[in-house]
Amino acid sequence: MSDVQKKTFVVTRFDPDRDQVPKTQSYEVPVEPDWKVLDALNFIKDHIDPTLSHRWSCRMAVCGSCGMLVNGEPKLTCKVALSSYGDTVEVAPLPNFPVIRDLVVELDGFMEKFEHVKPWIIRAKERAVEDGPMRQSPEELEEFKHFSMCINCMLCYAACPVVANEPEFLGPAAIALGHRYSLDSRDEGAGERNRIFRGEGTVFACSYANECSEVCPKNVDPAAAVNQAKLKAVIDWAAGLVLPRRAEE
């Protein structure tokens, strides 16, 4: 056996079938040196308590399922090493979302926000397949590439002080995604999205706390996207004053 070490996991439990309010439950887990937080949760599920509910799938930091609050910070549990924590590790569901059960939160609200920014290529005239791929220079790709890296893990919503106060706020990931499409040289939908971004509870609601970018496990930098989107929305609006028809196109 490799040096067996034990850690105590204090896990938030909530089953709407029987609980009024969430409670915590402690588990002692023999951990391996190379384990991530998710490995310990899977150990609990498989060997100690099969009633624990949590989401996970890829265990390689790309499907975005396993976001949770670990010792008070939003983390991708399949990516953070247990070795960076002490003998006691607290695991709770992501804040700023309704809890379905235990560590599982409700995402439907986010899915609506996500759709709201029109995350697809908008063109006045769609290109025929026979015409082949569009050209896009490596520099044009660089413009939006990092904003397209979001895995929808929701850590940024859990960290965002604005979402905490105004659950309706469009939020970092959705704004970054809309902005990603507006920056894409193949897209002509920036005007439409700028109109969305000028609406209530969108880019201007952001207080630029930058928490979202700090917790992002994929370095998407949503805070930068929100800031850029703000600027674009304003410039577009100002241009609309001069050339009223363009903004409405």
Partner: peptide, 22 residues
């Protein structure tokens, strides 16, 4: 080729050559 081209039209960020081709 037409299927991957469709994905390109739908926004897939394919890596590019210097001349902008996929």
């Amino acid at each position: 080729p037409p299927e991957l081209t469709r994905l390109e039209h739908w926004g897939c960020p394919w890596s590019r050559n210097a001349d902008g081709t996929v």
